[in-house]
Design a protein around this nucleic acid. Structure first.
Lengths: 242, 242
DNA sequence: CTCCTCTCTTGAACGTGTTCAACTAGCATC
DNA sequence: GATGCTAGTTGAACACGTTCAAGAGAGGAG
């Protein structure tokens, strides 16, 4: 059950280069086919309404075959994550290249995050619970999704590092992870947001970004240094894993 | 499916008073028996590992009978919520009666919240995901759990109102709900907390309470008035439901 | 007593996610 | 060419949550 090495983990063997159709990667094709089919059906019918049998039938394979490549139905969602993450990166890259203002960078990134996932809103709400379970490998805090998490934090690191904002150096170090945590909060809000076009989430972003910008600026104020130090100490003590 | 009125909604009919064993409440006994059995098995074996068949068998009824009283397996959890909420109220009542210091009141309440739920930590982690689904009636934000939510917010209202803390009147109005939201954050952290005795959650509380206390005090500072106003405006705009 | 009504109870049956022993196909080695 | 070897593939079978048509039992009306 656990510790199963999926075929995806295999590093392409030596004779993979320039191999004909049926070289070594026969399985990889099937894997992609199943994932593709699954995500399409999820989008069309919703997660709960899409059965593993339907996925297999639509992909033209046996149901057991899907389980050869994916440990469970939930694991199919990981593919969605990866894609979403890549889309976000691509969407914000040009802007992060040119713009220097911190608030603008952050705001654009958050809105892009919502944009990218918008087509999957109803679908996301349905499977969100599987990601929320602490023991699930799909949890954003799990060890298994650690690479994806790091990649996401890197986006916010880019937002901070590439900006012209001036702030406490220690806060600067912590800020990317804090922003990612805030983003998780936005996602949580977004999932619950039933307003048309998720307008409330947009308002949340538009309201929260200037606020964060202001608080970050205030962090250099003398009266607030003790409070800031207290916050950073708290973060450190929580992070301790004992 | 939706809109099903559970027997629990029935107001006790007129002839209920001083009725013998087999009066009108024959069903209520069965209901309690099933709930009791279910919660015990959840505690003993975990939520996922407890089957509806096992609950029915242990309670000595048919599996269909459990579904006569509870719409689904998840709905059995609501009973756990109610109990937990009542325990918390009882646990903090004496202290809130005597103590006046805000930080002390808040700290004690949060710790009591953890204490009360501690025996169910592993069990809670398992079923947490069902509560996380936005469409679930068990979600803390759902309309169905509105009474329970209001009751929980009332506890924090008590924490604020009964304290000697001085703060901005508008913030005072919003603070109970904000504290409840913070409490939800603590619960989220707690569910994920795998440290022995959930020590990290304790550290989070012990670190966060003085911080909140300090920030609340700082809220009266002149330099921070605009920021505070900005926060309150943001809350208001998010709350708008359109 | 007989019939009716309403609450409560039953367990077989359905569709689901998942498992697994058996089988197939390509490829290297003898 | 025969013989294995391993990655890939199959579908019947299992346990689960849930549904539902059928019935049981108690209390009143005639």
């Amino acid at each position: 059950m656990t510790g199963v090495t999926t075929p995806a983990d295999d590093t392409p063997a030596a004779p993979a280069a320039a191999a004909p159709r049926r070289g070594r990667a026969r399985g990889e094709q099937t894997r992609q086919l199943i994932l593709e089919t699954a995500l399409r059906l999820f989008r069309e019918r919703g997660y709960a309404e899409t059965t593993m049998r339907a996925i297999a039938k639509e992909a033209g394979v046996a149901v057991g075959n899907a389980y050869y490549y994916f440990d469970s139905k939930e694991h199919l969602i990981q593919g969605f994550y990866d894609r979403s993450q890549a889309s976000l990166r691509g969407a914000v890259a040009p802007l992060l290249e040119s713009e220097r203002d911190f608030a603008t960078r952050l705001r654009a990134t958050l809105h892009a995050g919502v944009d990218v996932n918008a087509p999957y809103h109803s679908f996301a709400a349905t499977f969100f619970k599987t990601a929320a379970e602490p023991t699930s490998p799909l949890s954003p805090f799990s060890r298994e999704s650690s690479p994806a998490r790091e990649a996401a934090i890197d986006v916010f690191r880019d937002v901070v590092e590439g900006s012209s904002v001036k702030l406490d150096p220690e806060l600067r170090r912590e800020l990317p992870e804090l922003l990612w945590l805030g983003w998780m909060g936005v996602v949580l809000f977004w999932v619950y947001d039933q307003s048309p076009d998720q307008r409330r989430t947009r308002r949340l972003i538009d309201g929260a970004v200037p606020l964060i910008d202001r608080l970050v600026a205030l962090s250099r104020l003398r009266v607030l240094r003790p409070a800031l130090r207290q916050i950073l100490t708290l973060i450190d003590s929580i992070r301790r894993d004992d």
